[in-house]
Design a protein around this nucleic acid. Sequence first.
DNA 1: ATGGGTTTTGCAAACGTTTGCTGACACAAA
DNA 2: TTTGTGTCAGCAAACGTTTGCAAAACCCAT
Lengths: 362, 362
Amino acid sequence: MAAKRPTVTIKEVAEAAGVHFSTVSRALSPATRARVNPAIVARVEETARRLGYRANTAASSLRTRRSHMVGLVVPDLASLLFPAILNGIEHTLQEQGYLTIVADTANDPERHRRILSAMVERQVDGLILASAMLHDAVLDEWLDGPAPIVLINRTDDSGRAPAVLSDDLRGIGLAMEHLAGLGHVRIGHVAGPQTLSTGATRRRGFAAAGAALGRRALPVAEAASFSREAGRLACAALLDAHPATTAVVAANDLLALGCYDALTARGLACPGDVSVTGYNDLPLMDLVDPPLTTVRFRHRDMGAEAARLLLARMAGQETAGDVLLRPELVLRGSTAPPSAAVGRGGAGPAAGGRRSPPRARR
Amino acid sequence: MAAKRPTVTIKEVAEAAGVHFSTVSRALSPATRARVNPAIVARVEETARRLGYRANTAASSLRTRRSHMVGLVVPDLASLLFPAILNGIEHTLQEQGYLTIVADTANDPERHRRILSAMVERQVDGLILASAMLHDAVLDEWLDGPAPIVLINRTDDSGRAPAVLSDDLRGIGLAMEHLAGLGHVRIGHVAGPQTLSTGATRRRGFAAAGAALGRRALPVAEAASFSREAGRLACAALLDAHPATTAVVAANDLLALGCYDALTARGLACPGDVSVTGYNDLPLMDLVDPPLTTVRFRHRDMGAEAARLLLARMAGQETAGDVLLRPELVLRGSTAPPSAAVGRGGAGPAAGGRRSPPRARR
DNA sequence: ATGGGTTTTGCAAACGTTTGCTGACACAAA
DNA sequence: TTTGTGTCAGCAAACGTTTGCAAAACCCAT
């Protein structure tokens, strides 16, 4: 099958079907199909199929100024957060005939610039950015560009582009209420980088929820990045400064895993000695040890929602402001009531210290 | 900044710089830059920058028949295997000035068809497919197409497209040797779908390694898909048929996690009663309980290698056959010498049955 | 000065579509 | 028969580049 294909164009189809090539164009495009005699439409379609005609989108987007492609820019493709988001974006765009170009900035602004430039040159009809910083110079350069922009997961502080976000204030609130409900009083926060909206907002949420519970000035340690290692360091710092801490709210799951490491390193058990909560509910968080209590929002929905928002904007519609996804708390094994013990301090690297007590899973 | 941009073209730059527009084209393209007076190049570049000129790739690829885009097709974006692979692909392509379009077939052949069609219409210069089936009709249709194809992670049986693969025979062999070395004799295989090369090859590897150890006809249970649930079912079937099994080699990590579930369900401990190995070393496999002994290959390298292969083919070079990545065994907590106990059979749903013994991590 | 050779620039024709206009034709009403 | 009203197909001009070809400009040696 599949005869060697020396690119057949609309003109060759026209010749074979015995009509003018403009008629072929009209016959093949859903929008104009109605304007041509049904008999001819049928004939043209049949010839096109027979010759193996494939439209050349480069030509058509040159003429129409629409490429039916959108660009997705992420800070780190390898993160476990993106597969589901990307999946949501890609599916809803695909349904509308759009293809998705994705690129990874590796957190490098220069690279970010180059990528956006390359995408715009490819005439993308719109952009979804998961790469926004809180004060984002790169973003500024493109807000007036030809392609509408939607932010996802993170936002910037200009408010000039609509964003699809988890409702972090509420999400962190849920975690705090849960811990307070268990009886925790000495709660600390391992915050994410304050240059990112997620880091900053969750920290604000932590302070606000603390205040609501009548506890001002709960301790916070800021991690240098959203990574397990940074979480370990920040948690260690937190525990050094506040050894009596019985619960830590981590700004995301990776940081929470780092907290596990820090606890293990000083022979503390989770949740026996210290409870830990995460944020995001990454895949497999139900399988780590102990299974992580964390705040979930539907990643796939976040992607789909961003895609829908972008589709609306590309269609020229004005859109209301940001979209906040409702978070929910998922209870697992990393949180428990505080133990009576007080004044711990011993460091020793006890292996296995953080095994959770047996508990039913799921 | 960023003045509202009403698309400035090469002609406007030409007028502003006082030269013919063809000169601008030559001045701006690295390949032809040498053919124009350096002073003019400088002037043109400066004016282009000043006016905020952005090349229109649609126009240039119409003329040159090169889009500098490649398509990547995966069966399931949400899988934990792809982020790293995609990362590898995207990075090495980006370095060469290519952008990556990715799409998800959701394992639907019709969708697969539409995606390939859409990508080819967008004039992609090449395709990387992670979606190949062993007998793949969809693939057949495109092998003679205009875009060179490279297969990744899976291959088909036609051998017509080069593939970048893990050396599964060797990888499974490593797992088998490890288990045999621990003293296991009654080893079973939870195989993946035999419609996929990974499923089929790993099964062959299992049989071959078994034979090499002097054990013919070791039991195999075939999972319906590469998923945790399918792994649970297959493992349960395996244990029903062969209750004395002391080790199971799963065809990938998800299946291995399903094996954990099956063991837990019948009150067996891993690795106390049954050892389990996986394949792929997905992220967080060091954190599940027990940490999974598995076969690793460098996912990112796989992506990078496929990209390089495609780059070569797009440059018109003939390439040697497939690329096999060397797998390595990573030893963790899910394997141990077989216990003396024999003739187990009790089913009871004992919670916590599969906790591993305390052991140092990393 | 003249001529030969080498850069450097301008000209214009593609590349494959879409789409506003015009013209051809058919049919119905006058 | 003429006129009017539609429907449908053809014509040709874009869209923004790249690039072969040829003219022009320059440099140097004669």
